[in-house]
Design a protein around this nucleic acid. Sequence first.
DNA 1: TGTATTTATCGGATATGGCGCATAGACTCA
DNA 2: TGAGTCTATGCGCCATATCCGATAAATACA
Lengths: 83, 83
Amino acid sequence: MSDPARDPKQIGALIRRARKQSALSQQQLGAKTGLRQETISLIETGNPAARIETLLAVLSALDLEFQVAPRSKDWSRDMLKDF
Amino acid sequence: MSDPARDPKQIGALIRRARKQSALSQQQLGAKTGLRQETISLIETGNPAARIETLLAVLSALDLEFQVAPRSKDWSRDMLKDF
DNA sequence: TGTATTTATCGGATATGGCGCATAGACTCA
DNA sequence: TGAGTCTATGCGCCATATCCGATAAATACA
């Protein structure tokens, strides 16, 4: 349902996945958002200094939404090592 | 549980609410994140050009998490006008 | 009312986004 | 193999985030 992301690379990966699911090229997504293909590329590769408004524009064009939620536990192998 | 935001002002409002629930001043939150009080202020007032990394740092310090979800319907009065 | 805390804002400096324009690699497919 | 598409990257430009230092404005509270 909703995918968490804690760093820009994860955000970029989420966006790339969503874009491909919509069968859009970076160029086409850029057109929908008023951004350049280069800018889409930068976001997807995890540009940490991308602007919030840019991120929101991309999410909106992909019919996605930004959400803020309490940190959920991530049961990584490391956290389970003592069980 | 998770609050949606579609523009920088809403994001800022969410952060301010969470900060106050943690009983932190902008100064204290700045200390936790390595950001200046001024920067926290800018984010909370809805700076659209804030950086993603800055946003993520603030969310992390507040034990919050960024999530991406499909757009949920928002039943505004306008959308209901024809019913 | 007066004082302390909190938040918003200013000037200057530095770094970087996103723009236009362009191209180099990758990859797909005929 | 070659053409077409897609993604990453380059340069110059302007705008602006964030930094430092400082202060004004707003708010809380005794």
